[in-house]
């Protein structure tokens, strides 16, 4: 039983740069929390503060109800998986996993049992005697995970653990991490810049930008109801179309119902369709400039009315569209998002 609670956590570096500007988060026991955001948004710094590798400039971080601000990393009962795996290059896989237990004076036979158990779970048993340099990227990743799980810590911390792997392995490991976390039920905080990884792994998804939390919640809640323009543009691939619509409207764009004043209109490419389906509120006329076929679907890129803002439309299956073609796409009222252009916040 171990939850993590951050209360107005701040990080100010010497020199005055504020990397984290007051983040409050509650991560329930056993929850998989993913911090996602562009590089430099403070997500890694936040994770390192939980780990104890960075001092906390303001606010408190509590693990299992105990404030850990002044507690050494070793005493926090956490385990961390690093982006470059950070395996001890001069030690065998076995010793890598046993190191943390030995430092804590665990009895030898228990170390042996735990390391073998972890090796079995992560399928690295054949490599126990090898040095890390004799392993592939994926195997190193497993060893790094093994080193984390043998200790049975209260919290797992992951710092972009998959970003050094190739695309195929990344998806495979992503699924395995999720399964492992489900099986062990250990509270986890996972940092990534990959929104797809974030969406698929998270129980609680936290989108960060410029040192602050933009929105936190279930992944699909963020997808369906982004609270800010930033979240709207960050979650989903290809990204949501965001068009600034002045009070007087835009040529080529018909909106039946809309909030008063200038707004930013958000509509996902997958919610624009060519055939009108019942009561469509939005109709756009686009001149196609590029066609991207990815197999299961096709993305059409084009400018509104030929010279307006750029929009993306997803068409299922193969498309016969050609650049220069003029198309009309519609969307239902329930799929539209409106944001205040000044504050960037959602208008409901």
């Amino acid at each position: 039983m171990s939850d993590v609670r951050l209360d107005a956590v701040r990080k100010v570096y010497p020199g005055g740069v504020e990397a984290v500007k007051g983040v409050s988060l509650e991560i329930a026991d056993g929850q998989f929390c993913v911090l996602v955001g562009p590089s430099g948004c403070g997500k890694s710094t936040l994770l390192r503060m939980v780990a104890g590798l960075e001092t906390i400039s303001g606010g408190t971080c509590a693990i299992d109800g105990k404030v850990v601000n002044e507690i050494e990393p070793a005493e926090r009962d956490i385990a961390m998986v690093f982006q470059n795996y950070a395996l001890y290059p001069h030690m065998s896989v076995y010793d890598n996993m046993a190191y943390g237990l030995r430092n804590r004076g665990t009895p030898k036979d228990e170390i042996d049992a735990r390391v073998k158990e972890a090796a079995r779970i992560l399928e690295v048993e054949p490599f126990l005697a090898r040095k890390p340099k004799a392993l592939s990227g994926g195997q190193r990743q497993r060893v790094a995970m093994g080193r984390a799980i043998v200790r049975k810590p209260k919290v797992f911390l992951f710092d972009e653990p998959l970003s050094n792997l190739d695309a195929k392995l990344r998806i495979q490991m992503r699924v395995e991490i999720k399964k492992l976390q489900r099986a062990l039920k250990t509270t986890s905080i996972y940092v990534t810049h990959d929104q797809l990884e974030a969406m698929t792994l998270a129980d609680q998804l936290v989108v960060m930008n410029k040192g602050q939390v933009e929105q936190a919640g279930a992944p699909l809640d963020l997808y369906e109801k982004p609270q800010t323009i930033f979240v709207a543009g960050f979650i989903g691939a290809p990204p949501m179309n965001l068009v600034t619509v002045p009070e007087a409207g835009l040529p080529g764009l018909t909106l039946i119902e809309r909030p008063a004043g200038p707004v930013v209109l958000g509509i996902r490419p997958e919610h624009l369709h060519e055939q009108p389906m019942g009561p469509d509120t939005l109709t756009v006329e686009i001149v196609v400039s590029a066609v991207e076929a990815v197999g299961a679907e096709t993305y059409l890129y084009g400018a509104l009315h030929g010279h307006g803002p750029e929009l993306i439309v997803r068409v299922p299956g193969r498309a016969t569209h050609a650049p220069g073609q003029r198309i009309r796409a519609c969307a239902e009222a329930s799929q539209l998002h409106f944001f205040n252009p000044q504050t960037g916040r959602r208008i409901d």
Partner: peptide
């Protein structure tokens, strides 16, 4: 790599160790 030292710190090794 700094992360190797950090990993050791999290693994409970004292600075001397």
């Amino acid at each position: 790599p700094k992360s190797v030292i950090e990993a050791a710190a999290i693994d409970g090794a004292t600075p001397m160790r």
